[in-house]
Design a binder for these strands. Structure first.
Length: 270
DNA sequence: ATGTCGTGAAGGTCACGA
């Protein structure tokens, strides 16, 4: 049986709990990977989320910033969190589950890569240095990953728009953090060396423009449409055909009190 | 392109991160 996985940078799970509830009622994903939950684990609205049908919740939160959570209708066989760049930042959680019960459990890796600040120079900007360091550690982790029998699926807000068609203007964003060559080449190296497939672009190929984030600062986000594709769904190439469909919920940017990111939903053969 | 958000600690607004 196919199952669905959503990834969504929700920009505060407590503020947007009503939005999460209406998202669930409308789309009923089996697994939801959230980023920027912005709360400690003991502040996470677990009861409300269990009431939505997600009995299994893996948390890696911290006060005020960052934070990831994976919500599931299926039980976890195992969960783990990693810390990158010698920091305690809450930017990763992996869950292992077996939706089809076929003994080949899937690993779902949920990431929130540092945004990287404004100046794209690691010598002038510690946040950009942190972002590059994080990508390097992600690459090492990905290259060393034990693949096992089941699929590995990597999702989240990677804060990098790798392709020219992943931003509203390739030329105008080459010096803007999220689309600089050192970032796009770094992320592409993680993808290629790790043997991953970019499932979103497999289903919605370039040169079609595709975005998952639009700034809050635009007067009219939809009319100006100056977006970036910062959120991703990857699967190892040998399992790529298991991803049957991808939908990027652009409409979610127009919901009341929206996140600046929209959800992506992947349908996966179990 | 500096416009808008969310959080936290104040303290009835601001600094910070995005």
């Amino acid at each position: 049986m196919p199952f669905t996985i959503a990834t969504w940078n929700i920009n505060s799970v407590r503020l947007r709990l009503p939005l999460l509830q209406s998202f669930v009622r409308r789309y009923q994903p089996d697994i939801i990977c959230l980023q920027e939950t912005k709360c400690r684990n003991d502040q996470f609205p677990e009861k409300a989320i269990r009431a939505l049908g997600y009995e299994h919740i893996a948390l890696n939160g911290q006060k005020g910033y960052h934070g990831v959570a994976t919500l599931s209708r299926f039980p976890f066989i195992q969960t783990s969190v990693m810390h990158f760049c010698g920091k305690g930042d809450a930017r990763h959680v992996t869950v292992m589950l077996d939706p089809s019960g076929n003994g080949a459990p899937a690993h779902i890796h949920n990431f929130y890569v540092p945004a990287g600040g404004d100046i794209p120079d690691p010598d002038q900007n510690e946040k950009f240095a942190h972002k590059l360091g994080f990508i390097e550690e992600l690459r090492n982790w990905s290259n060393a990953l034990n693949r096992g029998n089941g699929a590995n699926i990597l999702v989240g807000d990677l804060n990098i728009a790798p392709l020219p068609e992943d931003v509203w203007s390739h030329k105008q964003l080459l010096k803007v953090v999220s689309h600089t060559p050192v970032e796009t080449e770094g992320l592409t190296a993680v993808l290629e060396e790790g043997g991953w497939t970019d499932s979103v672009r497999q289903h919605i190929p370039a040169p079609e423009k595709l975005y998952t984030w639009w700034s809050y600062r635009a007067r009219d986000w939809s009319a100006s449409d100056r977006g970036r594709r910062l959120d991703h769904v990857w699967i190892h190439a040998e399992h790529a055909e298991k991803v049957r469909g991808i939908s990027v919920l652009r409409e979610a940017r127009g919901w009341d009190q929206p996140s600046d990111h929209v959800p992506i939903i992947a349908t996966v053969d179990g």
